Simulated assay, not measured.
Amino acid sequence: MTADPGAIARANEILRTEAGSGVHGLAIAGVSDHDENGVFVEPAEHVIGLADAVDHHTWRDRPEGHRSQAGDRECTLYSLRKFLRLAVAGNPNLLLMLYAPKASVYRTSALGEELRALGPAFLSRQAVRRTVGYLDGQVAMLLGRGRQKDMPKRPELVAKHGYDTKFASHALRLGLQGLELAEHARLTLPMPEADRERVLRVKTGAAPDLASVLAEIERVRDRVSTLLDTGRTPLPEAPDTAAISAWSVAAHRRHWDSVLPE
């Protein structure tokens, strides 16, 4: 019998939070969709048995390939093993789950709370560099230099503002969050008010023009790079993989003990 990845993910979920613009404090009423991310523990037979691995499951209101509309919901649940691999590598989207405010935590458990408490162990200079890499990717797509499938798909924004303001706002947000990580070894969600206003100004097309937006993004990026290059950051070079790995082993065992029959 073929396992249902969705049923497995939902039955073993330990954490789910708001994601996307909502958790950043950048959602625009009547415009933004609603994103969620979560973590589940794969059953033992899918990790140490012969059943196929189930590393993630996504459900969304619209079919794959169709752009989300205002209010549409999309949720992706990651297996704990996949989440940890991506978060340790500094994936900025998944680190949000560890720092989402209480109001944006939709489901949690004892293991979920322990995972969130491990948040500082994931923060590192490596994570900041990954964030800067995501920033560069957004700028490349903004300027039409990304892979063809990633070219701007929001012609209405380009027609109205002369460029894709959403890509531009993503790039600035990533830069400001990378700067907060590099300066203070923390990630504040929702974004601090001043930073949030800067990003919303770009997202809503209130910035003067693309050149001024690109200059602002570059200034923030340069500050981040200077902190990393000079070592003037409280962050360690790499995440604490030993602590994270030890917790992961214990978490899997405890979850399996709680669901397996006597």
Results as ranks from 00 to 15, higher is better:
A103C: 00
R116S: 05
V105K: 03
E64M: 14
A70W: 02
P101V: 06
L111V: 13
L95E: 00
L118D: 11
H57C: 05
A110T: 13
V47L: 15
R125I: 08
R85G: 06
W59R: 13
L84Q: 13
N93M: 11
H57V: 07
Y106A: 08
F83K: 11
V105E: 11
G137I: 13
F122T: 05
L98P: 04
L86Q: 12
R81F: 06
L96N: 13
Y106C: 07
S79I: 10
N93E: 06
G49L: 02
R116K: 10
R60W: 03
L94F: 06
L98F: 09
V132C: 00
R62K: 12
P101M: 04
D72T: 04
S68M: 11
A121P: 03
G133V: 06
S124R: 07
F83D: 03
H57K: 07
I48Y: 14
P101Y: 01
L84N: 13
L80T: 09
L84V: 15
C75S: 15
L98D: 08
G137Q: 05
R129H: 03
V139W: 05
G112V: 00
Q69D: 08
Y106V: 09
A117Y: 02
G133K: 03
A53W: 11
L77K: 04
P120G: 02
A103N: 01
Y134Q: 06
L135F: 05
A110I: 13
L86R: 14
R60Y: 01
G119W: 08
Q126S: 03
L96S: 07
I48R: 07
G112R: 00
V88D: 02
F122M: 08
Y78G: 02
A121M: 06
V105P: 06
G65W: 13
V128E: 11
H57F: 15
I48Q: 06
V105G: 02
E113I: 03
D61Y: 04
S68F: 02
Y99R: 05
N93C: 10
L84Y: 07
H46S: 10
G65I: 12
H56M: 08
K82T: 04
R107W: 08
R62I: 05
G49V: 07
R73M: 02
L142Q: 11
V47I: 14
L98K: 10
G90W: 06
H57G: 00
G65Y: 13
L94P: 04
D52V: 09
L86H: 15
R129N: 05
C75Q: 09
M141S: 15
S68H: 10
D55F: 08
Q138I: 03
N93H: 07
I48D: 01
A53L: 15
R81G: 15
R62G: 04
R73P: 00
L118N: 00
L94M: 12
A100V: 02
G49T: 06
H56I: 05
T108L: 03
V132A: 08
L118Y: 01
T58V: 04
Q138C: 12
Q69W: 12
G65V: 14
D52W: 13
V47K: 11
D52I: 09
G49Q: 00
R67F: 09
L80I: 13
L50R: 14
L142M: 15
G137M: 10
H56L: 10
S104L: 00
G137C: 04
A127C: 08
E74I: 10
R85S: 14
V139Y: 12
A103I: 03
E45F: 00
L95H: 04
A127K: 09
R81K: 10
P92L: 04
K82F: 12
N91V: 14
M141P: 01
A121C: 07
N93A: 14
N93G: 05
